[in-house]
């Protein structure tokens, strides 16, 4: 019988050790990014790196200013937010408030299906369909622009925003709604003045996570944003967001060289940004659950 007890302990030990895998990988990623990224700061200062306006990593006197890349990411992400917030939240409200049970059981899986399409397919769709369309519409020299990337990224992030917002709405207690109907409010008033405010921080979590997804998205922006590493002036010009720069240039950057380290440093900036987004989202959603009296 002693043996059985030892066996139990061994199993528990195995599970406990393996449970730390995620932590190990996360820490591993942080270590790798710092180890491979920090050497670039022997060449350029942190402020030169972050605020430098010229990204010429392969020139004979290279310059490693990533401001154009950061701004491109910001632009493209903001554009995506303008697309995915109304579409995502609107779809969630529709699913939650207007769609009957039958409609919901059909529509919800379709939205989930939209989320499962690989990003490279979105990128391909952007290149072959949206690009010529935008080019003709605005008479542009190229359709591969920040606008194109924003549209595609926005559509990609919509299902994420939609399902998270839908979750947030489902946490709003029925009694809130009934109380509002009881004082004579109609459905639209109840929705805009009671339900949405009650689910507000849950919905903002959804938006933040949607943005986080858009910032980190790689293949689509690589394929449709046009790739020009200049400070963006218009949505109708090509740009090069951080993810696209890493993906496009890593293949050619000599291992262990300055360019290689600079790309890792960009990845570090990217990682820290999404890390902050995720922590903020987690913080808000915890407060949201406590506010509605759900267990944290």
């Amino acid at each position: 019988m002693k043996r059985a007890r030892i066996k139990e302990k061994i199993y528990q030990g195995i599970f406990t050790v393996l449970a730390f895998a995620s932590l190990v990988f996360l820490v591993g990623i942080v270590i790798v990014l710092f180890k491979e990224g920090l050497p670039i700061f022997k060449r350029v200062s942190i402020s030169q790196f972050l605020f430098g306006q010229n990204w010429y990593p392969t020139y004979s006197t290279p310059e490693f200013g990533i401001l154009p890349l950061i701004l491109a990411s910001v632009w493209v992400t903001l554009g995506a937010v303008i697309v995915c917030v109304p579409l995502g939240v609107g779809s969630a409200l529709y699913l939650h408030e207007l769609a009957g049970h039958k409609q919901r059981t059909i529509l919800k899986p379709l939205v989930e299906l939209l989320a499962s399409i690989p990003s490279v397919v979105y990128g391909f769709f952007g290149m072959v369909i949206l690009t010529p369309f935008l080019q003709n519409l605005f008479h542009l020299p190229t359709g591969l622009t920040a606008l194109n990337a924003s549209l595609i990224l926005g559509i990609m992030a919509t299902p994420t925003v939609c399902s998270l917002a839908d979750d947030a709405l489902s946490y709003v207690p029925k009694s809130f709604r009934e109380a509002s109907f009881a004082v004579g409010a109609n459905r639209w008033q109840t929705l805009t003045q009671v339900v949405i405010p009650a689910a507000g921080s849950g919905i903002s979590t959804a938006i933040i996570l949607g943005m986080s997804r858009a910032i980190g998205e790689t293949m689509t922006v690589l394929m449709v944003s046009g790739g020009a590493a200049v400070i963006p002036h218009s949505y109708l010009e090509p740009v090069r967001p951080m993810t696209a720069a890493i993906a496009a240039e890593m293949g050619e950057a000599p291992m262990g060289g300055d360019h290689y380290h600079a790309l890792f440093a960009i990845a570090l900036v990217l990682f820290l940004t999404t890390f902050v987004f995720n922590i903020v989202a987690e913080f808000i959603s915890r407060r949201f659950r406590i506010k509605l009296g759900l267990s944290g």
């Binding site: 990988f25 990623i29 980190g216 998205e217 790689t218 890493i246 890792f264 990217l270 995720n278």
Partner: peptide, 18 residues
């Protein structure tokens, strides 16, 4: 949760380095 939020290209760099 945070591992789930890491951009996919960062995983690529991690794989490359490690």
């Amino acid at each position: 949760n945070n591992l789930a939020g890491v951009p996919s290209v960062v995983f690529g760099l991690f794989g490359l380095a490690v």
